[in-house]
C-alpha cells in the first residue's frame, strides 16, 4: 500500500469512528455536567460532576433505575439463553435434515423477523392483560423470543452449513449417538456462530423500547429503556437530561463488556485442519 493510500484509509477510518462515537461522547459529556452546566452551550463540561450518577444509583432516581436495571439484565439474559438453545437445535435440524415444511418454516421465520413490531404491540397488550402476563418477566421474554429466534435460526443455520458433514459421520462411525455427535462435535465447532447469535439476541432484547414501555406498568418488569422515560427533573419545569444521560451510559457498559468478552470467541477459521489441507 502506498503512503497516499494509507493516509486515505486512516482518514476514512477516523471519519467513521468520529461519526459513530460522537453521540456516545455527547451523552457521556452530558452525564458529567451539572444542571447549570447543561445550558452552557459547550461540548465539554466546564466542571465535571458525578451528581447525575449519584442520583440514579443511590439518590432519588435509584428507586426507578435500579429495579429497571435488574429487570433488563434478567430478561435479556433469559431471553438470550432460551433463544440460543432453541435456535441451535432448530438450525441444526434445518441445515441437516430434509423434512416436509422446511421451506415454510424458514420463510415464516423470516416473515416474523421483518414484521413491524409496533403493529403487534396493541393486540399483545390486550392478550397479556387477559391471560395475566402483563407486567411480568415472561410477558417480555416471549415477545423478545419471537423477534430474536428467526434471526438466530438464520444466522446459526448458516454456520452449521459450513461444518463438513463428514465430521458428524466420522463421530457416528466412532460410536457416537446422534446426540453425542451433535454435542461433542457439531456444537463446539459452531461456537463462534453460537456467540454471534447470542450477542445479536442480547442486543435486541436489551435495546427494546416498544415492548418495554407497552407491556409493563411497574418496577416488577419495566426494563431500563422504558424506565428512562419516567425520569423526572427536580421540578416539573426541569428536564432530567443529566440523569437520563447517566443512565444511558450505565446501560451501555454491559453491552461493551459483552462484546469485548465474546469477541475473542468469534474467531474465524475454527474449522481449520478439520478436513484436507
Amino acid at each position: 500500500m502506498s503512503t497516499g493510500e494509507k493516509v486515505l484509509w486512516w482518514v476514512a477510518g477516523l471519519a467513521i469512528v468520529v461519526y459513530a462515537l460522537f453521540p456516545v461522547v455527547w451523552i457521556l459529556s452530558l452525564s458529567l455536567k451539572s444542571n447549570a452546566g447543561l445550558t452552557e452551550n459547550r461540548f465539554w463540561p466546564s466542571e465535571v460532576t458525578w451528581s447525575n450518577y449519584q442520583l440514579i444509583l443511590t439518590g432519588d432516581a435509584s428507586d426507578l433505575f435500579l429495579p429497571a436495571l435488574r429487570n433488563s439484565i434478567g430478561i435479556a439474559l433469559i431471553a438470550t439463553l432460551i433463544a440460543v438453545v432453541l435456535a441451535t437445535l432448530t438450525a441444526y435440524a434445518v441445515s441437516r435434515l430434509q423434512f416436509p415444511g422446511k421451506k415454510l418454516l424458514l420463510t415464516t421465520a423470516l416473515a416474523v423477523a421483518i414484521f413491524p413490531v409496533i403493529s403487534i404491540v396493541t393486540p399483545l397488550f390486550n392478550i397479556w392483560r387477559t391471560i395475566g402476563l402483563y407486567d411480568t418477566w415472561p410477558g417480555l421474554i416471549i415477545p423478545y423470543l419471537a423477534v430474536t429466534l428467526p434471526l438466530a435460526i438464520w444466522t446459526l443455520s448458516a454456520f452449521f452449513r459450513e461444518i463438513p458433514w463428514d465430521m458428524e459421520q466420522a463421530a457416528q462411525v466412532d460410536g457416537a449417538t446422534t446426540w453425542q455427535a451433535f454435542t461433542k462435535v457439531i456444537v463446539p465447532l459452531a461456537v463462534p456462530g453460537v456467540f454471534t447469535t447470542a450477542i445479536i439476541a442480547f442486543f435486541l432484547a436489551w435495546n427494546d423500547f416498544v415492548f418495554g414501555i407497552s407491556l409493563t406498568s411497574t418496577d416488577a418488569s419495566r426494563p431500563v429503556p422504558a424506565a428512562l422515560a419516567f425520569f423526572t427533573g427536580a421540578s416539573q419545569f426541569e428536564e432530567p437530561t443529566g440523569a437520563t444521560s447517566a443512565a444511558a451510559v450505565v446501560v451501555t457498559i454491559p453491552v461493551v463488556i459483552i462484546v469485548l468478552v465474546f469477541q475473542r470467541r468469534i474467531v474465524a477459521g475454527l474449522t481449520n485442519g478439520a478436513v484436507k489441507g
Binding site: 463438513p164 466420522a170 457416528q172 466412532d174 481449520n272
Partner: peptide, 19 residues
C-alpha cells in the same frame, strides 16, 4: 446404526475434530 457395527473408517478428507 453405524455405531453398532464396530467398524472404523478413515475418510477421504480425514474428518478430524478441529477443536
Amino acid at each position: 446404526a453405524p455405531r453398532d457395527r464396530n467398524l472404523a473408517m478413515v475418510f477421504q478428507n480425514y474428518a478430524l475434530y478441529p477443536h
